[in-house]
């Protein structure tokens, strides 16, 4: 019995390592297929549309609400110390450093990542990928690579939109409703939010998240068990894995960027 438990553990670890290996092979194959994306920019545009434009509404609306909540909560906390003027710093710094990249990434994982997995998984289940192979078309170059780059390009733009809309949302609540001074909101923000330290690092974060989400989504789709049950499992796993990966990576990146 005791050995059986070890065997189960060992099988699990070996299986996970094998999947990890396959995932990396897929990533290298996608990167090796980058040239195809440059030769057919239209394929890339279509995927920026699928990931970026179709996620725009949910990202924009969420950004607005998150910014407004930050404005409200921040005001109540800061007002207790008589520092309501610093509301701008709080809203902007938390959005640009953390909430913008992270929440936008989670939304994209749910909205676009799951769709990518389902699409690729269904293409596999209905033999469309094998069909492409038989037409001497490499599905990794033709189907996966454009989707990968579409996600990587769209993610930082979505995060920036999220943060910008959030800052405006905080402005509406803080300045418009709660009466924080207009000038103080922007001045304090500009004085304390650093371009290099905050904005550039935020963009780097969202780029990394973009890679992580599309990679997980494409791998889960490509590696799916080609049945309808397999595709639905992969889709769920895609969202769960990419959400966990985003949060884990966020901790690592934050420690690297702001820890020193």
């Amino acid at each position: 019995m005791r050995f059986e438990a070890f065997a189960v553990l060992g099988r699990g670890v070996l299986g996970a390592l094998e999947r990890l290996g396959r995932a990396h092979l897929l990533l290298f194959a996608i990167l090796a297929g980058s040239g195809e994306v440059l030769r057919h920019p239209r394929l890339l545009f279509e995927q920026i549309y699928n990931v970026g434009v179709l996620s725009l509404l949910i990202v924009g609306v969420s950004g607005l609400f998150v910014g407004m909540v930050l404005g409200l909560q921040g005001y109540y906390v800061l007002a207790q110390f008589g520092a309501a003027e610093s509301l701008g710093i709080m809203v902007a710094a938390s959005l640009v450093r953390e909430l913008g990249p992270v929440v936008a990434a989670l939304l994209v994982a749910g909205r676009a990542g799951s769709a990518l997995t389902a699409e690729i998984g269904l293409m596999k289940a209905t033999e469309q990928l094998a069909g492409l192979e038989m037409m001497a078309v490499d599905p990794i170059r033709r189907i996966l690579a454009p989707r990968f780059y579409g996600g990587v390009v769209a993610m930082p733009l979505l995060a920036a939109i999220f943060s910008a809309v959030g800052v405006l949302g905080g402005y509406f609540v803080g300045v418009g409703l709660l009466g924080v001074d207009d000038g103080a909101y922007w001045n304090q923000m500009q004085a304390k939010v650093d371009f290099q330290e905050d904005i550039v690092n935020g963009v780097i974060k969202s780029l990394v998240f973009g890679v992580a989400i599309t990679w997980v989504a494409l791998f889960q789709g490509y590696d799916t068990v080609p049945t309808s049950e397999g595709v639905s499992r992969s889709t769920t796993r895609s969202v769960v894995h990419s959400a966990l990966l985003v949060l884990g990576l966020d901790f690592v990146l934050t420690a690297l960027m702001f820890g020193g």
Partner: peptide, 28 residues
């Protein structure tokens, strides 16, 4: 190169679902 000289008919047809009939045939 070899596969370009082979055609294969899959059980499910394996047509690309986001392309029309014409575009599917034109794809290769």
């Amino acid at each position: 190169r070899l596969r370009r000289r082979m055609g294969m008919l899959f059980q499910s047809g394996a047509l690309l679902t986001d392309l029309s009939v014409f575009e599917n045939v034109a794809y290769p």
